[in-house]
């Protein structure tokens, strides 16, 4: 069975006054298999982030179904949403969303603490995660003391430490320099190799070229998709770029 099923998702924003409506997403459907690494691309305003927020249960869709492991998000009560997110999903955001009041260690442990995990178990889980992301030496520093790349790695560590079913990343390389971005993409690839399912929203063809499949969204609708198949990353990158030029009718927007 598929891990994530998105069926005919529709999202309509209504202006508070005047009742003017804007359709951000119009009957978007796709599926993500367990262990897949899917990138969603599209120009600004195409509805990528709206889609991700809906899958993340941070936003509510107007129509359609989002089903994670056979369970529709609509059936989850508001009160249980936070716990659901905590237990099933991991997030990596463009602007890191780290708490400046916590050390790197505590930022990583935050979701575990919220689920009442025992201290020895937390430490046990933290060790390999921090090591694999090269954060061991930074654990006692605070977010404002480390670089952007390190912050984003902290966010990744926070996302994977709960061993979530699905990791959602929204433009994770957006605020990083090219070196840190490349490093982060390598880390995502490694996590993927370890069997983790990833859903990545991005502007960057380079970021998308690491995925095993790329979905293209335009004006709130699923436009096309590319499978990497046996391509090298470079070949896949070229295919993504040429597909984007089709998508944007000449005005290539590859971030």
């Amino acid at each position: 069975m598929e891990l994530l099923q998105v069926q005919n998702i529709k999202k309509v924003y209504t202006a508070r006054l005047g009742g003017k409506q804007f359709t951000a997403l119009n009957s978007v459907s796709f599926q993500v298999a367990r262990g897949e690494y899917v990138a969603i691309m599209g120009p600004s305003g195409s509805g990528k982030t709206t889609l991700l927020n809906i899958i993340a249960s941070l936003d509510k869709h107007t129509a359609g179904e989002v089903i994670l492991e056979g369970r529709s998000l609509k059936t989850i009560k508001d009160r249980e949403l936070s716990a659901f997110r905590r237990e099933n999903l991991g997030f990596v955001f463009q602007d890191f969303n780290l708490l400046d009041t916590f050390s790197i260690r505590d930022n990583i442990l935050l979701p575990l603490v919220l689920s009442n995990t025992k201290v020895p178990e937390m430490e046990e889980r933290l060790k390999p995660v921090a090591e694999s992301l090269g954060l061991t030496a930074l654990l006692d520093k605070f977010p404002y003391e480390v670089s952007g790349g390190e912050k984003q790695r902290t966010a990744v560590a926070r996302a994977i430490i709960t061993r979530p079913k699905l990791i959602l990343a929204d433009e994770p390389t957006g605020m990083l320099d090219s070196k840190a971005a490349a490093n982060l993409l390598r880390i995502f690839a490694e996590i993927h190799l370890g069997g983790q399912t990833l859903l990545l929203v991005t502007h960057s063809s380079m970021a998308a070229s690491h995925a095993s499949r790329v979905l293209f969204i335009k004006d709130g609708e699923l436009f096309s998709q590319l499978y990497r198949g046996a391509d090298t990353q470079k070949q896949f990158f070229d295919r993504i770029v040429s597909n984007l030029s089709v998508l944007s009718n000449g005005g290539v927007d590859i971030g």
Binding site: S82, R85, R86, L99, T101, L110, L114
Partner: peptide, 15 residues
């Protein structure tokens, strides 16, 4: 800001 982050990470609103 802090409140928004905590919610995203999965802390219950009332909490």
């Amino acid at each position: 800001e802090r409140f928004a982050i905590l919610q995203k990470v999965g802390m219950v609103d009332q909490e």
